[in-house]
């Protein structure tokens, strides 16, 4: 555990808390993509199956359980409790366009052809593109609430901080995982346009709106 990894995890945790707090306080999930949230639940479920096979630390187990539980709780809020506020018309990205190619890629490009390893690889690839339905939704409506922007910024920062963590681990631990690094870079690149808008607009007190 290094400082970048810890900051990355805290940023990820903060993103989830911001999202839950936004929904709970406003009693609404307007502007949030249910597709992205379903994909995240799939990501956590397929990646953390090792909860049953190996124990790493209390921290590790606690975080994994929290990520899984919060992702399903978010889906419950969106598709059940606050269903009336869910903006399904603008959430029209097709999940199968991501899940199917990513599933195929996980079968073809992995470290070891084992069920758990393939599922782990699938989750890494899927996480890298899981934000696309959300970004698609923001571009379709042309705007995002400020609280949603904070959520996306924290979520994007998490993988950027993981890249610093991988650079650190490469130099100081001799550790390198090509699959995680490439997918992590793809994931971070997808946020670049958003980061630019966040810094130039939201941080200056303006609402995030896209030029028509």
């Amino acid at each position: 555990m290094n400082v970048f990894r810890l900051l990355g995890d805290m940023s990820h945790l903060l993103a989830i808390l911001i999202l839950l707090l936004k929904m709970w306080k406003t009693r609404s999930c307007a502007g949030i993509s249910g597709k992205t949230q379903i994909l995240f639940a799939l990501v956590f479920t397929t990646r953390y199956l090792d909860l049953f096979s190996s124990f790493i630390s209390i921290y590790n187990t606690t975080m994994k359980l929290f990520f899984i539980a919060s992702s399903y709780f978010t889906i419950f809020l969106m598709y059940s409790k606050f269903k009336a506020t869910y903006d399904s018309n603008h959430d029209s990205f097709r999940m199968e366009f991501l899940v199917v190619p990513v599933g195929g890629l996980a079968f073809l490009v992995n470290h070891e052809f084992l069920p758990l390893e393939i599922l782990w690889t699938f989750s890494i690839y899927l996480e890298s593109v899981a934000i696309l339905p959300q970004l698609f939704m923001v571009s379709k409506t042309g705007e995002a609430e400020t609280i949603t922007s904070h959520y996306l910024f924290a979520l994007g920062s998490y993988r950027l901080l993981y890249i610093f963590n991988w650079v650190y681990r490469y130099y100081f631990d001799g550790f390198f995982d090509l699959i995680a690094v490439v997918a992590g870079c793809v994931q971070t690149i997808l946020y670049c346009d958003f980061f630019y808008l966040y810094i130039t607009k939201v941080l200056k007190g303006k609402k995030l709106s896209l030029p028509a």
Binding site: H12, S54, I56, N60, D173, G174, F175, F176, D177, L178
Partner: peptide, 10 residues
């Protein structure tokens, strides 16, 4: 190249 160490990441 060590990849198994990535499994402690979240």
């Amino acid at each position: 190249v060590d990849y198994t160490a990535s499994k402690d990441e979240l």
